[in-house]
Design a protein around this nucleic acid. Structure first.
Lengths: 249, 249
DNA sequence: ACTTGAAAGTGACGTAACGTAATCTTGTAT
DNA sequence: ATACAAGATTACGTTACGTCACTTTCAAGT
């Protein structure tokens, strides 16, 4: 029989917790002193460890109580349903993660956030996975469709995507300097390089992407992140200027 | 100006929720009727949508309140820290998932669960990833080490692992029938087939695995799931019988 | 035996975001 | 004018404890 203090020392579990477990009858102490101080034995220590372990599995105290008190508890069933629950939680978390990343990327590009608009966009995105796929396949071949995923994807967070997004963001930032300004042309050069790195010299594909990109409706249907029309126009002008100089060399 | 009922119709949000948002001053109604009934306008509807959206991102109402009331809210920072938080939650969930799967598999093999023992095992497993790797490399070559992961791994849930586990479980179930019983020999035959499917005819490797498997200490160091000694012995006898008949053919 | 400080006891309130009564008042359609 | 739906207020329940506030018990030293 050891004191409550000893238990907390050995297990790291707080006094309050032990009192609470006593209160809800999950783990009553083995006995009490005359003065009413709780005393615990080996059996209780073991049960305490079991409780802690089951807690790490995400069970709540009620469930744990049932499991440990019911001699005929159906572990297979219990674990299965807990796993189901956890898988659903995982799905939720993964969705949140991808939405957050999308938001971050959108913020980098736009500098501000229209929450309601983005919400709609995301709802749309979730619902229409199938439709979007069909629409994509109309415009692009199977191989090309894979290439599409290399474009800024909003929901990814890898260095590659980040650079695309950073480039578009920079473009926007310096837009007021005019499409032939050296800063702009430097950015365009990098975009050009990156395009070649990413897509090789698949010119045809690049043109197709550009055609879709230029139409907001088509962009939405394929699932591109929306970029303001005037930024797209601005980019096109800057791009043309760059290509003229580029071809002269 | 629309009534509270209209709002719930349009948004699906409960009356209680709206009252609560009013109470904590997150979303006060645009006005009230003489009798004190709440009235909402377009602005409030939009804000409500924003709140709902931010809630799906895992923010709590206090945070949302701050974000929406502070004109200079640092979205980049806020999203970043929320993403951090979510990533930690994801880690937790993933750990729970893998532990639950391990438990399920252990249950299939043993038919019962010693929670404290398993807890220790899992703690050990988490701590000693590095040590285990080193130990593995002493016994097995690099390529072989990859093959090891094809063995029943406790924390995986793919059909392949499940079949290994089912086979071991069946073996245990019918152990009382003796190592030469037809049921046992059928199971062994399947194990033999599966071994060849998995490892090809890398006999040398299989012998090494077997050597480690036969020693509980070595098994633990390499990270194999613990199987009772007498089950291993039983399997060895059954295996020998099978191989004799097999080689005669 | 007496004192004293640490350890333990028992309430009771707070947390997050509402759900769920219970009871009373207001709005509105007939 | 009346009836019935919709709304208001108040308050308790939920989870797993943390954190006071105040009182009592324990163990050690004198």
């Amino acid at each position: 029989m050891i004191s409550i203090k000893e238990v907390t020392k050995q297990t790291g579990i707080s006094v309050r917790t032990l009192r609470y477990y006593d209160e809800i009858n999950l783990l009553p102490p083995a006995g009490k002193t005359e003065g009413g101080h709780r005393l615990y034995g080996e059996k209780e220590l073991k049960k305490l460890q079991e409780i802690q372990f089951l807690k790490t599995l995400g069970f709540n105290l009620k469930e744990i109580s049932d499991m440990l008190s019911d001699e005929d508890w159906d572990w297979a069933q219990g674990l299965e349903s807990q796993l189901n629950y956890i898988m659903k939680e995982k799905e939720k978390i993964l969705e949140i993660e991808s939405t957050l990343k999308g938001l971050k990327n959108g913020l980098t590009i736009d500098g501000k956030i229209d929450l309601v608009y983005l919400n709609k966009l995301i709802q749309l995105y979730k619902q229409d996975t199938e439709k979007r796929k069909l629409y994509r396949e109309q415009y692009f071949h199977a191989q090309e469709s894979e290439l599409l995923d290399l474009l800024p994807n909003m929901n990814r967070n890898d260095p590659d995507t980040l650079e695309w997004i950073a480039l578009i963001g920079q473009l926007k930032q310096h837009r007021d300097k005019g499409s032939d300004a050296p800063e702009i042309q430097r950015i365009i050069r990098r975009i050009h390089e990156k395009t070649i790195e990413t897509f090789g010299d698949n010119e045809n594909f690049f043109d197709k992407v550009w055609e879709v990109r230029k139409s907001p409706e088509k962009s939405q249907k394929v699932g591109f992140y929306p970029i303001e029309q005037d930024l797209i126009d601005f980019f096109e002008r800057a791009w043309d200027i760059f290509m003229e100089n580029y071809e002269e060399e």
